[in-house]
Design a binder for these strands. Sequence first.
DNA 1: GGATTGCCTTGACCCAGATCAACCAGAAAA
DNA 2: TTTTCTGGTTGATCTGGGTCAAGGCAATCC
Lengths: 252, 252
Amino acid sequence: MTQINQKIASHDGQERCGDCPIRYRAVCAHCEADELALLEGMKFYRSFEPGQPIVWEGERMDFVGSVVTGVATLTQMLDDGRTQMVGLLLPSDFLGRPNRDIAAYNAVATTRVVLCCFRRKPFEALMCTTPQVAHRLLEMTLDELDAAREWMLLLGRKTAREKIASFLAIIARREAALHKRDPGGRMRIDLPLTREAMADYLGLTLETVSRQISALKRDGVIELVGKRAVIFPDFARLVGESGNDADGGYPR
Amino acid sequence: MTQINQKIASHDGQERCGDCPIRYRAVCAHCEADELALLEGMKFYRSFEPGQPIVWEGERMDFVGSVVTGVATLTQMLDDGRTQMVGLLLPSDFLGRPNRDIAAYNAVATTRVVLCCFRRKPFEALMCTTPQVAHRLLEMTLDELDAAREWMLLLGRKTAREKIASFLAIIARREAALHKRDPGGRMRIDLPLTREAMADYLGLTLETVSRQISALKRDGVIELVGKRAVIFPDFARLVGESGNDADGGYPR
DNA sequence: GGATTGCCTTGACCCAGATCAACCAGAAAA
DNA sequence: TTTTCTGGTTGATCTGGGTCAAGGCAATCC
């Protein structure tokens, strides 16, 4: 185990060994020349326009993939239309489930999205022949589970203001990670979601989202540039508003 | 892949090939005599009394394991004491995360619990040498992720009444699966949690839980025997109250 | 230019569920 | 037998966030 872990760890987080994120984060086969060639031959790209559905719940899905650029969402709905977002897919996140060809959630592109895809069958075969692929996928799934549980705490117990602050902090952390910087001090982000989508993510209404953003602005926690760009004069202050301890607890 | 899947599938759900649930649900090595012997040599049992903590968040945890009997909970807390349950561990559920020795959540036994445990190091080694173990664990983790997402929908968008009905339906389904029956018609379950623990699971207060249970009783959806036993005169009626479509959507 | 559309903000009001508080029932201790 | 404790119920009241409704502001389209 340890050897394999070290092999994989060397590609974690920062190092990317090509143009396809699957190579370092989703499923890295860099260390195995044969597998690399196999992955190269298998992969193909698909792109989606803002608002365009990627798959619909219940639909057949014959590929898995990971996000190269853009932002996509996973949502669930009740019969009467109440909607809850259950996943936010940012670059390097994985979409689809091995060994299940029916999508369990609606996946929608919220910005222009490029996916790096693999046909399901050969990908599943690859998972069987290369343990690293299965191990990496397990690691990623466990991370997602941790994130989901963090989100359960937010949905179940945080106030609207804390929810908004938590959301902004998450986006800021992931944005910072993408540019290999540490979040802190003064920083700026662009919101990848509309107020309505944020509401669906946070278990709120869009009016409440709007009001709380205005309140955070009034209180000097954030500044707005237009509707979509947000500046944090002091990132620590934002984190203090989020209800979490300083480290944020978000493992990703 | 397919061969391995078939091998494993034969032990799924119903068939149990020994006294340890890890053998059919968590990590089945039945088909490999050597691995079976290895698992036999590795496993040991630990039991916990009601209310006793299993591990505390941040504590070192040098084992993983699966629940043999009883019910345990995973909870997260905010600094000010607000508590959210993020997992309910019933028999055959897995506890602990490979490749992480610091517990991320508080795990507490709510009834008398028996765990079938494996020391972390040899278990991780086993995961590397036997792909089935890693595959099975991936399957289980993906199921847990689905359940967590279903729970996010509940926490974010359901009313108190729907939350209670959903919770009762989940317990009933898992109870039925344990006794190899289909849930339906008239059935009876014993609640494994106090009102307060249910509240922490559902993102409510214990008073609201109590009131909604009383309301469901008044409306004839459930009958109570004492405080902890619940009878559903008509299981379909309960499901109708839960906000979910008939199949429940719960993949486990 | 004016009209339409999509997204956002703000105000007024309301209600589901939280909070605070009293009380109840059974089990265990004294 | 009474006392205490734990877990559960119920009532009265309050409030955070939902609901409904009226604009505002750009961008795009005739």
